[in-house]
């Protein structure tokens, strides 16, 4: 399936998680995500946890953390 991390379009296996897609995007980004220095957000601005399913055409924005609950 085709997904995007920030501006980077990629094809990834069906059934992949947000974490898989970020690792495919870049190992550096994946490490920063695990350290919670970068947070994945969906197109609505919600935090998407790394274990969550990613779906065809989805865009994930990796950003510095905002204040969260």
């Amino acid at each position: 399936m085709k997904v995007r991390i920030n501006r980077h379009a990629m094809e990834i296996f069906d059934g992949a998680t947000v974490g898989d897609a970020i690792l495919a995007h870049s190992q550096w980004s994946f490490r920063k995500m695990m350290e919670e220095k970068l947070i994945p957000y969906d197109r609505f601005g919600n935090v998407t946890e790394p274990g969550g399913a990613i779906s065809e055409g989805q865009i994930i924005f990796l950003k510095k953390p905002k204040h969260h609950v």
């Binding site: 969906d42 919600n46 935090v47 998407t48 946890e49 790394p50 399913a53 969260h68 609950v69």
Partner: peptide, 29 residues
């Protein structure tokens, strides 16, 4: 369904008062 599909469901069915979702592990604050 995941939040992306929940949005499509809401677009298709305004009869829902609330959609309580899962699958995408989304934290909707």
């Amino acid at each position: 369904l995941g939040v992306e599909e929940d949005v499509r469901l809401a677009d298709s069915m305004p009869q829902f008062d609330v959609i309580m979702g899962g699958h995408s592990h989304t934290l909707i604050e």
